Simulated assay, not measured.
Amino acid sequence: MPQQVRAVVARSKGDPVTTETITIPDPGPGEVIVKVQACGVCHTDLSYREGGINDEYPFLLGHEAAGIVETIGEGVTHVEVGDFVVLNWRAVCGDCRACKKGKPWYCFDTHNASQKMTLEDGTELTPALGIGAFAEKTLVHEGQCTKVAPDADPAVVGLLGCGIMAGIGAAVNTGNVQRGDSVAVIGCGGVGNAAVVGAKLAGASTIVAVDRDPGKLDWALKLGATHAVNGSEEDAVEAIRRLTDGFGADVVIDAVGRPETYKQAFAARDLAGTVVLVGVPTPDMTLEMPLIDFFSHGGSLKSAWYGDCLPERDFPMLVDLYQQGRLPLEEFVTERVGLDDVEVAFQTMRDGKVLRSVVVL
């Protein structure tokens, strides 16, 4: 029978979130209920609250989560009751043109639960990225559950569900960083510093972190950056070129997603370097550049959507590396908070005081 649980809801644009009782239906075919153990506070959740994604209020927020499969619906074979899983928003279909081309990380028809979770009065909720995990329990498609090592810390590995995977993947998958490459990362919040970690994991020899916040640069140096550039004190493009023998970086990752930072990334790459956009621009942003600048450079310009990841391939591998001490995922957990603290965590994130606040249930 349907269950009632506590969850964090955004009812209208810009208003503070509230902790409310919601109703979760029994799982239908292909669906599962996951008992959430931890969920990271991601900027995407704040974007939902602010109306930056769409206007399908009320939203059930939260998506960087890990937990235990509690109940499964008819025909579910991907997971079993009791499995420890990290939730993902890329449950690939296997049938679209991208999947059939062997590029499922570009899947155009990813799966979500068919049924809706609701408020107590029956109002349907829109779950953030098809997950909605600032909740004691949530309903998802079985393909959104990726089994990982059951003894891993949920507060740590749950972060792979979005931002940390986006950053690591921007370097490893999208940017295809190779051993000995030079890499520059512009913007060193959670995603940018994850890109620093990804570049180090891939074997980059020079990793230049760029930000205007000294605290974020300190995090970057701790996580593997070889150089830190304070963009408020010196020209970032000139600094990156100086630190790469005057050539520019092999891979430049824009983890901010603004026209100004994208232009910096473009100008700071080597003649045949790669620019990776992983920061998310708002719909109103535009870019104006001379077309000759594009013609005069080789290389490539790429966008990293979820770090071009495949959860079934990438999550277990990264959790294994974390447990071996080769991937410092725990360094991204700045604080652990309760379900009623999400609004405060949003402000802490805005103030740049954390890499990640994590709601622990």
Results as ranks from 00 to 15, higher is better:
residue 289 M to P: 00
residue 315 F to L: 07
residue 20 E to K: 14
residue 349 M to E: 01
residue 267 A to C: 00
residue 11 R to L: 10
residue 86 V to H: 04
residue 283 P to N: 14
residue 65 A to C: 02
residue 355 L to S: 09
residue 191 V to E: 02
residue 9 V to C: 08
residue 298 G to T: 13
residue 288 E to R: 15
residue 220 A to S: 13
residue 186 I to C: 08
residue 206 T to V: 09
residue 68 I to F: 02
residue 202 A to P: 04
residue 111 H to Q: 15
residue 113 A to I: 09
residue 2 P to R: 14
residue 305 W to N: 09
residue 88 N to R: 06
residue 176 N to R: 14
residue 89 W to S: 13
residue 316 P to V: 03
residue 141 H to G: 10
residue 212 R to N: 09
residue 269 R to C: 11
residue 320 D to P: 09
residue 307 G to E: 02
residue 278 V to G: 05
residue 39 C to A: 07
residue 327 L to Y: 04
residue 12 S to E: 15
residue 81 V to N: 03
residue 202 A to M: 03
residue 14 G to S: 01
residue 73 G to K: 01
residue 347 Q to N: 12
residue 59 F to W: 10
residue 113 A to F: 07
residue 232 S to K: 05
residue 170 A to D: 10
residue 334 T to Q: 01
residue 174 T to N: 06
residue 109 D to T: 14
residue 23 T to N: 11
residue 14 G to N: 03
residue 113 A to N: 11
residue 154 P to E: 00
residue 298 G to P: 05
residue 31 E to Y: 07
residue 231 G to L: 02
residue 58 P to M: 10
residue 227 H to K: 09
residue 146 T to A: 04
residue 322 Y to V: 00
residue 272 A to F: 15
residue 188 C to Q: 03
residue 327 L to K: 03
residue 46 L to F: 12
residue 335 E to P: 05
residue 19 T to S: 12
residue 21 T to M: 12
residue 43 H to M: 14
residue 97 R to K: 15
residue 296 S to R: 14
residue 180 G to Y: 13
residue 220 A to E: 01
residue 234 E to I: 09
residue 125 L to F: 11
residue 80 E to D: 14
residue 207 I to H: 09
residue 239 A to F: 09
residue 23 T to M: 12
residue 324 Q to K: 15
residue 240 I to P: 03
residue 355 L to M: 13
residue 248 G to R: 04
residue 288 E to L: 13
residue 82 G to N: 06
residue 224 G to D: 11
residue 154 P to V: 03
residue 141 H to M: 08
residue 35 K to A: 11
residue 119 L to P: 11
residue 306 Y to I: 06
residue 121 D to C: 12
residue 62 G to N: 02
residue 42 C to N: 03
residue 49 R to F: 04
residue 16 P to E: 10
residue 78 H to G: 14
residue 89 W to D: 13
residue 56 E to C: 00
residue 279 G to Q: 07
residue 345 A to S: 14
residue 306 Y to V: 02
residue 127 P to N: 10
residue 250 D to V: 08
residue 6 R to W: 11
residue 301 L to E: 08
residue 258 R to D: 00
residue 212 R to Y: 12
residue 285 M to R: 12
residue 285 M to N: 12
residue 228 A to V: 04
residue 228 A to F: 03
residue 103 K to C: 01
residue 361 L to G: 06
residue 56 E to T: 15
residue 213 D to L: 11
residue 354 V to P: 01
residue 69 V to R: 08
residue 13 K to P: 13
residue 76 V to D: 01
residue 354 V to D: 00
residue 163 G to T: 05
residue 114 S to V: 14
residue 139 L to C: 00
